[in-house]
């Protein structure tokens, strides 16, 4: 990487603990794709070769909440589904982050009716909202970069 030339044979590198842990965290996000509608179809484009989210280190999709630290809520969440989403979030170990992808997850979208939750922030905390119906893959990658920026400003001393 060229770094070894700068170090001139020194075996150690001094840094802040927050810096090195956040550096590891932000380039190794393991997303749990909570896909309930067409946004999840768009997410397939995000992870496959044309847009390739592995360039940002978040390609290892996990379907167990115990193994994930990034919850991607993609699609309409009904009142009947709400306790399930809450439980999935609670089962994820800290530290964890949440992306609300698309109009439905963020606000209910045009489903302003008896059956749909009007935004998942009624249920769980959200870090980044992505606009669109559905959003373009670039928007989703943009959200992951936002999460990475947020991670780099966090500290291991005050976990949420």
């Amino acid at each position: 990487m060229g770094l070894e030339n700068e170090l001139e044979g020194m075996p150690v590198l001094a840094t802040r603990l927050d810096e090195v842990i956040n550096w590891g965290r932000k380039y190794a996000l393991w997303p749990l794709p909570y896909g309930t509608a067409c946004c999840a179809i768009e997410f397939m484009g995000v992870v496959s070769s044309r847009f390739d989210v592995s360039r940002f280190g978040a390609e290892l999709v996990r379907f167990s909440p115990r193994q994930a630290d990034l919850l991607l809520v993609m699609g309409t969440i009904t009142q009947k589904m709400a306790p399930v989403l809450k439980q999935i979030y609670d089962q994820m170990p800290n530290p964890k982050w949440v992306v609300s992808m698309g109009a439905c997850a963020s606000s209910g979208g045009f489903y302003d009716n008896y059956s749909v939750v009007q935004g998942i922030d009624e249920l769980i905390p959200v870090d980044v909202y992505v606009a669109g119906c559905p959003p373009r893959p670039e928007n989703v990658i943009g959200a992951i970069v936002k999460i990475q920026e947020k991670i780099s400003h966090e500290s291991i001393r005050n976990w949420r």
Partner: peptide, 9 residues
């Protein structure tokens, strides 16, 4: 009118 589901999963 909105009706929330409160029982655990």
């Amino acid at each position: 009118k909105r009706q929330k589901l409160t029982s655990p999963v």
